[in-house]
Structure formats: structure tokens, C-alpha cells
Design a protein around this nucleic acid. Structure first.
Lengths: 145, 145
DNA sequence: GCAGCGTTTGATATCGTGTCTCACCTGAGA
DNA sequence: TCTCAGGTGAGACACGATATCAAACGCTGC
């Protein structure tokens, strides 16, 4: 089953209609191999309006099909990633975004809960670094930063 | 030495001039006990212009006097906090922001570096939960969320 | 005191991202 | 068919932030 069908089924299961506009937005999102901005999709879905693209993105975010990635410069982008709670490593060299298999900081969070008296219910974690390829290309300025 | 003097000295040390506008913005930021938006400061510094407030905030961010806090709804706010790298717990009840004493996920990051092949250079972590006070007030809806 | 010159300022325009509004359209079920 | 809730597109609006630019400021050397 293709990703597109997979996602439309999810939408239908929640009682949303599968319209041509929505299909177009989903297809455009799936066609992006990496991250994208909402405006990227607006430009690629000439048929669908701005509002529809934003609505569909929000829908997909709720569905867990698309997740938001915060970049180091503060900009927000999207990424197709059909998995539950997870985090990303963003390569500061090439901009590539890698999913992390699992939430690696569960233990740390438990400790923090105990230490602060807060009941930690959620968190946001983004990692920034350089992927193996970028490091090979520009062999790390000794101790820079 | 007051915080204001402390900060102006830091600015001077970097070669920035201490102007009345900058003093006003810094004073307004220090007067906020919790987090604030740039617009808060614009309203409180009637003398200083919008652009100047934004410029000064960015300056203070570079100086490590002010840090940015990402809220769960995606909005960005600022917080006076004269410490190095650290993180925050944001109370989803009252909005209070607590600094965490140290970066609690150093070990986890090292593991992630090894696992992904990325050289992790930076990260962004925000925690969301409910502070002891809020939990006392509204005694946790059993297993909600 | 004053000219020269780089820095800083404030007003305003512009941008980027996202939401809201509203008249119109669509398609699933009766 | 018909009905009508849900969906759509165009465009206005909101909001946070940056860019531009002429004018003012304030060091510095004379």
C-alpha cells in the first residue's frame, strides 16, 4: 500500500473526507524527501489555496503523519514522518534531518521530575550537529565553536 | 552591583555603546519577573522604537543575558537569565518558567552521537509540565492526556 | 569648540508564518 | 434528485520579527 493511500485511509477512519485538494497536499508533502515549509507546499499545490494547505498540514500533524522541526535559526519546518513520539537531529551543514529511533531522554526526564517537583508531561527536543558526510567533506575545524 | 550595571558593563566590554534607549530596554526586561514577549517591552519602553527593542533583545540574547523559551503552543518568549547553557520547565498551568540547574541530557547526547554518526554540537530542550503549586490546586485528572 | 565619522536610533515598510472570514462548492446519505 | 454539513479558495488580517534609511548621537582628534 502506498503512503498516500495509507494516509487517506487514516483520514477516512477519522471521518475526514478525501478531497482532491487534500490528496494534492498530501502528495506534495510525500514528494518532498526532506523537510519543507508550508509555503513550499502552497507553491507546489497550485490548485489548492493557502488556507487549505495550512489546514491540511495541521490535520496531518494531528494525525501524526507530519511533524514540526524547529531549526537552529528559530524557523519552523515540517517533515513527513509516520511514527509516534520521536526527535530529530538536524545537520547544520546540509540541512538534512534524521529521525531518532526513540526518545532517548526518558530517564533524564524522570530525574528532572523528581528534582524540580514538576510533573513533566511533555517535552521538545531538537539536536543540531553535523552528519558523517558533512564531517568527511569539511574535516572539522579543530575545536571550533 | 545591580543587574542593570552588570549588563551595561558587559555591553561596554564588547564595545557597544550604552544609550538611554538600551538602558530603558534592559531595565524593562529586568523589571519583568517572568517571561515576556518583545511586544511587552515595546509597550513598556515608549521612548524606544520597535526596531531598537528587537535589536537590543537580540544583543542581550547574544550576550547570554536573555534566553528564548519555546512554549508548547509554538510561541517564542524571552526570559532574563544570566547563566550559560541551561534548559527550562514551563508550567502548562500557570505559565511559570523554571530554570534547570544544568543540562541533564549530556550523557544521552553522547550516546546519540555514537548511535547516529552525527557530531552533536547543540540542542534545544524544553520541558512542559505542571508545577507543584498547580498540581496542588487542581489535583491531576487521573491519567488525563 | 568643532568637524569627521562610525554607531545607534525611530519610523516605517516589508516579510514569513499562520489564522479567520465568507461566499461558494462538493459529495455522501436520504 | 435533494439536502446540508463539511470543505474550499481568495483574500484580509494578526503577529512576531527583520530591513531600510535618513537623522541624531557621541567619540576622537585637532
Amino acid at each position: 500500500m502506498s503512503d498516500l493511500e495509507n494516509i487517506t485511509l487514516k483520514l477516512e477512519a477519522r471521518g475526514y473526507r478525501i478531497t482532491p485538494s487534500r490528496r494534492a497536499v498530501i502528495a506534495a508533502a510525500l514528494a518532498r524527501t526532506g523537510h519543507f515549509t508550508a509555503d513550499d507546499l502552497v507553491n507546489r499545490c497550485r490548485g489548492a489555496g493557502r488556507a487549505t494547505v495550512f489546514r491540511t498540514i495541521r490535520l496531518l500533524t494531528e494525525l501524526g503523519v507530519v511533524c514540526r522541526v524547529l531549526f537552529e535559526d528559530g524557523s519552523m519546518r515540517y517533515l513527513v514522518s509516520q511514527r509516534g513520539h520521536h526527535h530529530h537531529v538536524v545537520c547544520t551543514g546540509c540541512g538534512h534531518v534524521e529521525d531518532l529511533d526513540q526518545c532517548a531522554i526518558k530517564d533524564a526526564l524522570r530525574e528532572l521530575s523528581d528534582a524540580t517537583g514538576y510533573e513533566v508531561e511533555g517535552h521538545w527536543l531538537e539536536l543540531y550537529g553535523r552528519c558523517a558526510e558533512c564531517r568527511a567533506r569539511v574535516p572539522a575545524e579543530a575545536g571550533a565553536r
